[in-house]
């Protein structure tokens, strides 16, 4: 069979969702952000909620998420996205409101905001990208950087005496009464991406059921920050990140 006979509109089984804009993403090749953006966009398309979704972008690499998902967006000050989301959702309960935050934004400067939004049980979705490094500012230590991991501010590896321990903030948030769904996912292969999509969909659905906060961590790569090729970074993540940040649901009620 000739390829020309296969490549026809009626034979499409996968194409870019129209909720993703046509802008070329500024992310480095192989960056996990792109996959997660795509998954969120696909969930929005499948649920038919493009006109009812408000996204809140962080400070960090994902600050420009608003250029890629064709929905209404707020851009938050560093770490404050859950506070914005709190008011946005309380004043607009008919909207699906989600924040999209990295590890520096959510687990360092924004610890108070995420803790209290989750503890109040705000009916929002929080998508947390944990790649154990500050990407945008050039690869410094994040709260989630692993012990021994080399970054621009831990050039000899993270040392607990000097830098403290990697923060398992997702485990902390799972303890709070206000969270209804807390899960840790990844996006490095087809199976993990499909699981992630199910998790994001569940989180979005929860947010209309007054069940509390849904929190989806995605363990991802920063191949530029880690100084690896994208494929090697995925392997390093599986070997080093997953043992410390095990995947799976921590809470689902």
């Amino acid at each position: 069979m000739d390829i020309k006979d296969i490549i026809k509109p009626e034979n499409v089984v996968y194409s870019k969702t129209p909720v993703l804009s046509d802008a070329i993403m500024h992310y480095c090749p192989g960056c996990t952000h792109g996959v997660v953006h795509k998954v969120i966009a696909e969930v929005i398309e499948e649920m038919g909620i493009q006109d009812k979704t408000i996204g809140i972008s962080p400070v960090g690499c994902a600050v420009f998420a608003y250029n890629y998902l064709n929905i209404d967006w707020e851009q938050a000050a560093h770490g404050r996205a859950p506070a914005l989301a709190t008011a946005t959702k309380r004043l607009n309960p008919d909207k699906y409101v989600f924040t999209y935050q990295g590890d520096g934004d959510l687990a360092s400067i924004g610890t108070a905001e995420v803790m209290h939004a989750c503890n109040r049980g705000e009916n929002i979705v929080i998508v947390f990208i944990n790649n154990a490094i500050y990407g945008m500012t050039g690869g410094q230590m994040a709260p989630t950087t692993l012990l021994g991991q080399v970054t621009a501010t831990t050039p000899y590896g993270r040392d607990a005496k000097l830098n403290g321990y990697p923060l398992k903030i997702t485990e902390l948030l799972a303890q709070l009464e206000g969270t209804c769904y807390v899960t840790r996912q990844s996006a490095q292969n087809p199976a993990s991406v499909r699981k992630l999509k199910k998790a994001i969909r569940k989180a979005f659905e929860n947010s209309m059921m007054e069940k509390g906060t849904s929190f989806v961590e995605v363990v991802g790569t920063c191949n530029s920050g880690w100084k690896m090729s994208p494929v090697k970074a995925n392997k390093w993540m599986e070997e080093n990140m997953f043992p410390f940040y095990p995947l799976g649901d921590m809470k689902d009620r």
Binding site: A76, A77, A83, L84, T88, A112, E113
Partner: peptide, 16 residues
């Protein structure tokens, strides 16, 4: 939980 959060809630509400 703080004034920091208050003003950012204002930002979130005002955005809508």
């Amino acid at each position: 939980e703080s004034e920091t959060s208050s003003i950012n809630m204002v930002y979130g509400g005002a955005s809508t």
